[in-house]
């Protein structure tokens, strides 16, 4: 039994910091707002992590809805054939698992100027698990202290373990991360809840250069399976470090934009990891004091009560249980 994995947010800043903390260099994540092949191509994306609402009513079937299971690729020891695929053993680790599925399948091209550099932790992990079957790889991932600790450092900071897990449970239980990337010039979908990698299109039909054009129709087909009201998904692209690119092509405007993005990520990550209890106590006292001074204390409390009860009613109308009212 391994230690606990907390849930982390699907956010380019979190994911980028996560892989950088693991020692990976020259790559980053970037958020995609629309399913646009041009945007993906522009980023030079070589993989995507797709977060979506998990259809709990969808039955598992011997064949995937789209594409084909490629069982051979998992066990193959042939360097031109094998795919790093791990069965998901821990729900909360699925974000990390999806990003590793993209990252660990990137072959390093020595001729590239800034090739993907996995770093020691991930290189060792990849070597260690390369001969394992999929379920053992999943176990190995769950049991990797280095990866778990990095992953957990991004979980929301809270001194109250139980509410942490409850917030996570309510938010994330029905969400799932999967990865798509080009491996040996072939488009694969890597979903730890499936028995094998899913191959889309023919072997060799998807070199990295056409990844953007190949993956978008596959994603569109997937999204179209859900009712229009259910489309809550998030798409993160794994691409070369955009600051390096900007420097190379001498685009100072792009460089400034990317540097600003990094500052914002650092800011948000600092807040994500912060324990706000002391701040909330101080803020609560301050607001209470000012409301008492200008005589609007009762009005403030009543207003908040009204907002709460309105929301409770709203939820009840939508069929949520009344006891969920303490969630924001």
């Amino acid at each position: 039994m391994s230690g606990g994995w907390n849930t982390i947010e699907s956010d380019a800043g979190v994911f980028t910091h996560l892989i950088e903390s693991l020692g990976t260099k020259n790559v980053q994540f970037d958020e995609l707002i629309s399913l646009d092949p041009d945007a993906l191509r522009e980023l030079g994306a070589f993989g995507v992590v797709f977060l979506f609402k998990y259809p709990t009513d969808e039955k598992t079937s011997p064949t995937p809805r789209d594409g084909e299971f490629d069982y051979e690729a998992v066990d193959s020891q042939d360097d031109d054939r094998k795919v790093w695929f791990a069965a998901q053993t821990i729900q909360n680790a699925c974000g990390t698992q999806a990003l590793l599925s993209v990252l660990l399948n990137q072959t390093v091209d020595e001729n590239e100027e800034n090739p993907v550099n996995l770093g020691i932790t991930l290189t060792e992990f990849k070597d260690f698990t390369s001969a394992f079957p999929a379920d053992l790889r999943g176990e190995a991932l769950s049991n990797s202290d280095a990866i778990r600790e990095t992953h957990n450092s991004f979980a929301r900071s809270s001194p109250f373990a139980s509410d942490e897990s409850r917030v996570a449970g309510a938010d994330d239980d029905v969400y799932h991360f999967i990865a798509y990337t080009s491996i040996h010039d072939t488009l694969y979908e890597l979903d730890g809840l499936q028995p094998a990698p899913i191959r889309h299109g023919d072997v060799g039909a998807c070199p990295r250069e056409v990844f953007a054009d190949a993956v978008v129709p596959v994603l569109q087909s997937r999204i179209s399976r859900y009712p229009a009201t259910e489309i809550r998904f998030n798409l993160l692209a794994l691409c070369p470090d955009l600051r390096t690119r900007a420097r190379e092509i001498g685009d100072s405007e792009m460089l400034e934009k990317e540097e600003r993005k990094r500052r914002e990520w650092a800011w948000e990550n600092a807040l994500r990891r912060h324990n706000f209890v002391g701040f909330i106590g101080e803020l609560m006292k301050g607001v209470t004091r000012s409301k008492l001074q200008d005589g609007t204390y009762d009005k403030w409390i009543e207003g908040a009560k009204e907002t709460t009860s309105k929301r409770v009613q709203e939820r009840q109308r939508k069929g949520h249980a009344a006891d969920e009212m303490d969630m924001s």
Binding site: R156, S158, F160, S162, D163, E164, R166, V167, E268, L271, R272, H274, N275, F276, V277, F279, I280, D326, M327, S328
Partner: peptide, 14 residues
Amino acid sequence: SPQLTQSLASLTSA
């Protein structure tokens, strides 16, 4: 920030 809102919700649950 959404992070503060989340912390406020956690503290309420606690």
